[in-house]
Design a protein around this nucleic acid. Sequence first.
DNA 1: GCCGAAATTGGAAGCGCTTACAGAACCTTA
DNA 2: TAAGGTTCTGTAAGCGCTTCCAATTTCGGC
Lengths: 333, 333
Amino acid sequence: MSNRPVTVDDVAKHAGVSIGTVSRVINNAPHVSRKARDAVERAIDELGYVPNRTAQSLAGQRRGSVVLAISSDDPGLFANLFFAQVVTGVNAVVEETDLELQLVLAASDKGRARLSRIFKSRAADGVMLLALKENDPLSALAESSGLPVVHGGRSLDHEPRFYVDADNRGGAREAVEYLISLGRKRIATITGAQDQHVGVARYLGYREAVVLAGLDDSRVAHGDFTETGGEAAMTDLLDRFPDLDAVFVASDAMAAGALSVLASRGVQVPSDVAVVGFNDIVTAQHTTPALTTVRQPIDALGREMTRMLLRLIDGDTPTSLILPTSLVRRESA
Amino acid sequence: MSNRPVTVDDVAKHAGVSIGTVSRVINNAPHVSRKARDAVERAIDELGYVPNRTAQSLAGQRRGSVVLAISSDDPGLFANLFFAQVVTGVNAVVEETDLELQLVLAASDKGRARLSRIFKSRAADGVMLLALKENDPLSALAESSGLPVVHGGRSLDHEPRFYVDADNRGGAREAVEYLISLGRKRIATITGAQDQHVGVARYLGYREAVVLAGLDDSRVAHGDFTETGGEAAMTDLLDRFPDLDAVFVASDAMAAGALSVLASRGVQVPSDVAVVGFNDIVTAQHTTPALTTVRQPIDALGREMTRMLLRLIDGDTPTSLILPTSLVRRESA
DNA sequence: GCCGAAATTGGAAGCGCTTACAGAACCTTA
DNA sequence: TAAGGTTCTGTAAGCGCTTCCAATTTCGGC
């Protein structure tokens, strides 16, 4: 066992060909005779040769890696099932290629700086960006970098060129229509942050459904997607609209908060007030009562983002995608 | 704006020095005069130069990246808060360096192959391995690769050279001692998979506490860490030991299952039976009643693994770490 | 104001690969 | 069988950087 790793030269020598030929075999480029190819492949096997990615990318034009970047202000945000699931989906597709997956959590300035260096120095073949801040300077940088960039979700200020998003508006609308079909008439909503596209879209879905049914859309409290935010909003709602008979909550976390407020006030769910959440995080199965909610295809989001990025890298021009949601009926509505 | 990225040569020319000097400045190596350093730094600024990582690692000895690998058989496993939190911790430390973080989910053969290529071709400066299978061939490969490797958790068959683990045994023991301090006498346990170190360690902690207190340690049902496994085990326990007054459950997921069985049998928690879980996943706050559980410092696990790896890369010899757990008291005990 | 040692610098040789380019080998056709 | 294509193959020039070495400069002490 030599200590020095095996290189193309070793393979070339062993196979009795030139390094050019070895390289062609590795990249299965044309213009290699059957005989030469066999010899090289045997040599690779016998020597246990593994190409040096670094050298490949320095010499060639592809970097050999894609990055998944999460840009937000909340350092704890990644500790969230949502991202874990996105990563799973991304990985499933990346795994089929020989690309490497690089993760960048751009919650801090350091993280952001790192990401912008990647853009500037084109240190990857492409980037998937989950930009959670509105007006994220990174989005602009990403677009102008010339690197293939796929966005997860949209933002209020700017529709990215290529993105994959869930049908937040449609999902919300479906949820509310379901409540209506249950005979509920005084339907409130707890919205998510209204400075984010997702928050606005779900609110819009609510209004759309309520207004189309000729119902009152004024029972609104604004939340921030967190559990405590949900508690506050539910309390507020109950105080202002004691007559409400259903609530569409723009996230499961907020819904969990809402449920506990409802319970502590002695309000029966779903008999007195029906509750529907959004996201279908695991927790939704364990609330009391189990939460009826809108499921987002999160791993599909990851998968489709990655597929889209790969096509972009290949020079294709994919079209952005809106993934359908689905209502998961449990006990709360 | 030229299209060609700025290189050392450009900087050297602009600063009126040689590329050797530029390189020294970049890597802040000694033997550079104040004057030269200033000139180079100014040039870097003015030109917006960003070193090409690929070239750096090809020329130098460091790769510039570390990998976080999760080796398991369950493709869905990563979609688990545990990993998301580990990643958060890892990222926090990696972010302080100029290393890149590469993620490898080695659940499939492809993933595993990828990981072993990394080992063989030393395509990273080091790897953090969360090997969840016992007897994972990857562990052996990792050790023999000569690359710095830090393990998260231990395995039954083999104590890794460098690892970070939670104090599973001590945490379990503390949980059971707490139940004892509550006056419970007939304490059962639902164990985790007994072919994993973590499962065995928690079981050992249970026995240690129970036996030391002179109580009976025979009320045991084996689970598999899943919710349904917890349900089955709880049912079994209730049938075999109708007199039990407490259960230490080796994971929160199983505890959730146990709680629902308890509820359906009309057993009051905690008055009839006290329940303590392990892990403190988010769900633990939302069960009914809220679950008393042992918290693992998961992000600390990620952080410490990374610190350990960095030291290893620097040529130090760190010592393995066992991180303390803490009991989180909620309503179930 | 001179000497040797130490600090600084430039230049060049790679790192392991890809990719023209040009030459060699092999087929076609007439 | 020779001309004119094709298809292979080897060679060499980089990719952008680090680092070694030798050359140059600087500097303290006499």
